[in-house]
Simulated assay, not measured.
Amino acid sequence: MSLQWTIIATFLYAEIAIVLLLTLPIASPSKWQRFFKSKFLAYISGQASIYFLILIGVLVLCLLDAIREMQKYSNIESTDHQHLDAEMQGNMRLFRAQRNFYISGFALFLLVVIRRLVQLISQLATLLAQSEANFRQAQSATVTARDLLEKAGAGDEQNKKELDELKSKITLLEKELNKEKKDKEAVKSQAESLNKEYDRLAEEHSKLQKKLTVASGGDSKKDE
């Protein structure tokens, strides 16, 4: 394997490790959000889009080169059957082109998956934080309104009006509290569906790693 494809394969293995870290229940979304907003990542986040586009461009070029090699050696395989050595060389180069195609293709795919996972985890952490803050605010307002109701007497007409206003406020606050509870349940449901999607991606990545291991083993045997 040339230096170029060795670097891309190493990058692919690193992507698999990152995806496994993001999908496994190692840390909560809030902890990942704090990690994403750390000083180091904040330092490079300004140029993250540029790095992402550069990596996409490099992987696309490698993918196109692998496709070109596949087409080239596929044509040789279909026409040249006169010499056994030439046919074996053509088959070996075709196999390497196919291996490079899978390596670059899956590296490009996982790069997009990692970016999307980071975005989903950040959005989930933000939604959880907002839901928790709104829930506490609604609880505090409800407790305050009930305390005022307990202190309110059955006095004159003004007290009755204030009592009616407090009751209406309590009703509104209870509605908001129920809404926040439903939003929190919806966020939990979204988190569960996201974890299921993570598990599915982790299973696909495990299968991919097995295929790459088998492909690398076959390539080593042919090189020997």
Rank of each mutant, 00 (worst) to 15 (best):
Q4E: 11
Q4G: 01
I7A: 12
A9E: 09
A9G: 03
E15S: 15
L20K: 14
I26G: 08
A27V: 07
S30V: 10
K31S: 09
Q33N: 13
R34V: 02
F35H: 08
F35Q: 02
S38Y: 05
S38T: 03
A42M: 08
S45D: 12
G46M: 00
G46T: 04
Q47G: 04
Q47W: 10
A48I: 04
I50D: 11
F52Y: 14
F52A: 09
L53P: 00
I56S: 03
L59F: 04
C62M: 14
C62A: 15
L63T: 10
L64R: 11
L64I: 06
R68L: 14
E69P: 03
E69H: 08
M70W: 13
Q71R: 15
K72M: 07
Y73H: 11
N75T: 13
N75C: 05
E77L: 15
E77C: 09
S78H: 09
D80G: 01
H81Q: 11
H83D: 15
H83F: 13
D85Q: 13
E87Q: 14
E87H: 13
E87F: 12
M88G: 07
Q89D: 11
G90W: 03
M92G: 06
R93Q: 10
R96H: 07
R96P: 01
R99E: 14
N100C: 10
F101R: 07
Y102E: 08
I103G: 02
G105Q: 05
F106T: 06
F106A: 04
L110Q: 08
V112C: 08
V112Y: 06
V113R: 11
V113M: 14
I114N: 01
V118M: 14
L120G: 09
L124I: 12
L127K: 15
L127W: 09
L127Q: 15
L128W: 05
L128V: 04
A129D: 11
A129C: 04
Q130G: 03
E132A: 15
E132Q: 14
A133G: 02
R136T: 06
R136S: 08
R136C: 05
R136I: 07
Q139S: 06
A141R: 06
T144M: 00
L148S: 01
K151M: 09
A152P: 03
G155C: 09
D156K: 06
E157N: 05
E157W: 08
E157I: 12
N159T: 11
E162C: 00
E162S: 00
L163D: 00
D164W: 01
T171L: 01
L173D: 03
L173N: 02
E174D: 06
E176L: 08
K182E: 14
K184T: 10
E185F: 00
E185M: 06
A186R: 14
K188V: 10
E192M: 13
E192H: 11
L194T: 13
E197S: 15
S206P: 01
K207P: 00
K207C: 03
T213P: 00
A215W: 04
S216F: 06
D219L: 13
D219S: 14
S220H: 08
K221E: 12
D223I: 15
D223A: 15
